[in-house]
């Protein structure tokens, strides 16, 4: 009976298991194999040992700049996304009239096609007629050429990324709703003001979500691609030639699929290492009620 139950269980799980093996595990391991080859999407390839990795660190002209671009983007966008998402989540937790409408509005960008929003942002970032620079002009600031000035193009993409902070907002809102009101009532009895309630109750209780969003935001930031692909390409002076974008052009434009696989594995190792570092350094500060 036990064996039969086990078989039935595996059968029920098999669609997922097949998906895992065919669409995740197999490509993952294949890419590891390819990273040691000169595979170019043709029928033949040869094993070339560590050559791809050596080239990457010694003679790829765009490699280190693409790393810098991705690191810069991650370091700026991750905390900003956390702060904005959490801030909006706090606001959306207020008991004001029509709050559900506001929640919908703030979440709406997450369900709109990235291509459509990119088009809108390309207009908003225009130097002369763009909304952003028009607003800056009202306060006497001359806005930059957001998308074409190498000094501002990455910043523009960070701002565009904040547009989607509504996704995090929903999670924070769910977390905030889950905090028992008894904690706040007890704190009030003890004379705590709003700041102390936030600092000593809200923040610790929401810290697992903050930590989760920090990790996923960091991983997503390192892998930034779509916005640059749609909006700026490699950008003026390669200012938005992000690591994954560089990987994509190596694979698709130059047919260096083996090399791109090697880049992918370096990205995986770096992401895993830094994620573990964050886990160790920040994870210990997270408060788990259970």
């Amino acid at each position: 009976m036990q064996k039969r139950e086990a078989i039935t269980g595996y059968l029920f799980a098999s669609p997922w298991l097949i998906g895992l093996f065919v669409f995740t595990l197999y490509p993952l391991l294949s890419s590891l194999v390819y990273s040691f080859t000169n595979y170019s999407m043709g029928k033949d390839f040869d094993f070339i040992g560590w050559t791809n990795f050596k080239i990457m660190f010694t003679s790829d002209h765009g490699f280190f700049q693409s790393i810098w671009n991705s690191v810069w983007y991650t370091l700026v966008s991750t905390p900003l996304n956390l702060i904005c998402g959490f801030g909006v989540g706090l606001l959306m937790n207020s008991k004001v009239k029509g709050i559900k409408v506001f929640r919908c509005i703030y979440y709406l960008p997450c369900v709109i096609s990235v291509v459509a929003t990119t088009m809108v942002w390309s207009w908003m970032f225009q130097t002369k007629y763009g909304l952003l620079n028009q607003l800056l002009a009202y306060i006497g600031v001359q806005g930059p050429a957001w998308l074409t000035d190498p000094a501002w193009s990455k910043t523009a993409l960070v701002i565009m990324g904040l547009w989607n902070c509504g996704g995090g907002m929903m999670m924070y809102l769910a977390g905030l709703k889950g905090i028992s009101s008894t904690y706040y009532e007890a704190a009030e009895i003890d004379g705590a003001n709003a700041w102390w309630k936030f600092w000593k109750i809200t923040l610790p209780m929401i810290s697992p979500l903050l930590f989760y969003n920090l990790l996923t935001g960091f991983i997503g930031g390192i892998q930034v691609f779509t916005n640059a692909f749609l909006l700026t390409g490699a950008g003026t002076d390669n200012s938005t030639n992000f690591y994954v974008y560089n990987m994509y052009t190596m694979a698709m434009n130059n047919r260096r699929m083996g090399y791109a696989c090697a880049m992918g594995w370096i990205l995986l190792i770096v992401t895993m290492s830094l994620s573990l570092l964050i886990w160790r350094k920040v994870g210990s500060r997270v408060y788990y009620e259970s």
């Binding site: 000169n38 040869d46 070339i48 050559t51 791809n52 050596k54 080239i55 003679s59 790829d60 002209h61 130059n254 260096r256 083996g258 090399y259």
Partner: peptide
């Protein structure tokens, strides 16, 4: 030139 050299290192 560098990228062409890289290609030959691979191939």
């Amino acid at each position: 030139t560098q990228e062409i050299n890289n290609y030959h290192l691979m191939n």
